[in-house]
Design a protein around this nucleic acid. Structure first.
Lengths: 139, 139
DNA sequence: TTGCGTGCAAAGGTTTTGCATGGCA
DNA sequence: TGCCATGCAAAACCTTTGCACGCAA
């Protein structure tokens, strides 16, 4: 766990515990609710959203909005600092999050910065598409 | 205009007219509604969504889901192929959305595809960062 | 005339907000 | 004790759907 903000409550603890356990995939507020309910520690949706909101703001959790999904997805971020130095690819099929450190991407970054005057923030940018596995099994 | 599907109705005509006029930017269903209403040719939201849906399906219009936006954005596609190579930059400070067609960006796509086995979907991908104006005034 | 397209209203689902209560520090 | 966090319910949003009517072809 990282930055400790606010109070430590049982609800918050359970929520973060779940997010960490599922850090390899994204989950919706609904799924979180279902899980917490299933383990006998139900947390109100309002609280779930409020906690997620602050976690996202703190950089502890990442929020994804994906076409085809009616709801947002959340995913725990292990090492925030490290994640500032590379880009992310997110598979729209399986939800896998790939961390990609590639010099070519950094080149593009500086190219856009120099030729288009736009400074890309890698920590906020996500490339959406299909990973190798899902590209094969097509859709 | 391209593929002609279904009936030609006044509503459909107005809607497409607006989309074409604003092909350089994204618009939400809400904005379309507001515009049509302002010019005295109101079209029900249901119809707007239904028309957009089929236009998207026909490839005439592109749908974008952007993080931070709760609603979808739509944009008329002049040349479908061209738009495959068209990425978006969104300024985190002022919210400006920049449409960038740059050969260097095409390169990234193919590079990532070839070397990392990941197929990027430009219609879902948005680069976040700071535009020239905001980078200067360093928010 | 035949159905497709439209509008209205209602339904659906997700996320946010107001307010009183309860718990952390 | 003083706030902050939670829960519940209601509200706010965005989008979809059902149904009857009107218009395009």
């Amino acid at each position: 766990m990282k930055k400790e903000l606010g109070y430590n409550t049982a609800q918050k603890e359970k929520l973060i515990e779940f997010l960490i356990k599922n850090k390899d995939k994204h989950t919706s507020a609904q799924e979180i609710d279902t899980y917490l309910r299933s383990v006998g520690s139900p947390v109100g949706m309002a609280t779930i959203y409020r906690q997620l909101e602050r976690l996202v703001e703190a950089g502890t959790v990442r929020k994804f909005i994906i076409d085809g999904k009616s709801s947002a997805c959340f995913q725990y971020v292990e090492n925030e600092k490290e994640c500032r130095e590379h880009f992310h690819l997110k598979c729209l099929s399986c939800g896998k999050l790939i961390h990609l450190s590639c010099s070519r991407l950094m080149d593009i970054s500086s190219h856009i910065s120099q030729n288009h005057g736009f400074i890309i923030d890698p920590s906020q940018t996500v490339f959406y598409g299909r990973c190798a596995d899902c590209a094969v099994s097509k859709e």
